[in-house]
């Protein structure tokens, strides 16, 4: 049996709870879990002050409640499964090393920031800086998959190096900013400055979007040979790509100068 945590009162200021992570909880008895430290603003409190706890010693964890103000859940997790019912706050799965996070609800900024491996699935909308590099870091996510069914915010995949980000809806500005590798798939396009200053990597948009003036058109009506492979890889994640579509391929960002690829579904 897994562990089930339910939020029993709303935090009035952000609640930082990096202990809500399979790596930490898996070895804890119910009493130990209740005594884990969380930070309500500057106050250090036991987890049981905010959560009702059922179960113990498991890396299968379910968390219920409106967790919008709860940050750092699943920080650096390397195994197991986190299921979240409800909205969740910033830094979900940051520095993740493996395992699975599933959210039924919306997520905040910085989910999967600088993650290395594992999967994050958001059945809802998410904030900005998904899979991004923290300020000043040279690299964002280095592997793994982030799938957001809804829309997302600014700087999605900023400086990512490897791995895949799939956004079902649309994203805001600077998607793939300074990207160094990996793949971003955009179901409903993006606002502006997509792929700005990218060096390498691939951004695929299934809807027309505004292309930066420093991207050159390489080929129109192009069927990328890797699409079937990508489609196959994503099927197991429950993502289906449209088949036999052709794309316009742009290269950039010339300002760097970079060799990134921006594929936009041909109209």
């Amino acid at each position: 049996m897994g562990i089930k945590l339910t939020l029993i009162r709303q935090p009035t200021v952000p609640l930082e709870a990096e202990v809500l992570c399979p790596d930490t909880l898996a070895d804890c008895s119910a009493d130990e879990i209740a005594q884990l430290t969380i930070y309500h603003g500057k106050r250090q409190l036991p987890l049981s002050d905010f959560f009702e706890i059922e179960g113990e010693k498991s890396d299968e964890i379910e968390i219920h409640g409106d967790l919008k103000k709860v940050r750092w859940i699943g920080r650096g997790m390397s195994r197991g499964r986190l299921k979240i019912q409800g909205d969740v706050g910033m830094h979900l799965g940051a520095y993740m090393r493996d395992g699975l996070i599933e959210v039924k609800g919306d997520a905040g900024d910085w989910i999967g920031a600088e993650m290395k491996k594992g999967t994050i699935r958001i059945d809802g909308n998410a904030g900005g800086q998904i899979g991004a590099a923290y300020r000043g870091s040279r690299r964002g996510m280095r592997g793994g998959l982030i799938h957001v069914t809804g829309s997302a915010g600014l700087e999605v995949g900023m400086r990512m190096r490897r791995g895949i980000i799939v956004i079902g809806g649309s994203t805001r500005d600077f998607t793939g900013l300074q990207m160094k590798g990996g793949t971003i798939l955009l179901g409903e396009g993006a606002e502006i400055r997509t792929g700005a200053w990218m060096n390498r990597g691939t951004i695929i948009s299934l809807k027309a979007l505004e292309v930066m003036p420093t991207f050159g058109i390489a080929i129109r009506q192009f069927t990328p040979p890797f699409m079937p492979l990508l489609a196959k890889a994503l099927v197991s994640e429950g993502i289906t790509l449209p088949e036999n579509k052709s794309f316009d391929l742009y290269n950039g960002d010339l300002a760097v100068p970079g060799r990134g690829e921006l594929l936009v579904l041909s109209s």
Partner: peptide, 20 residues
């Protein structure tokens, strides 16, 4: 942002079209 980014490209003698 677009203008500055174009300037960065032009400074490095990268090809940017008139339309862009």
């Amino acid at each position: 942002f677009e203008l500055i980014t174009i300037l960065r490209a032009l400074v490095k003698e990268q090809q940017v079209t008139d339309e862009q």
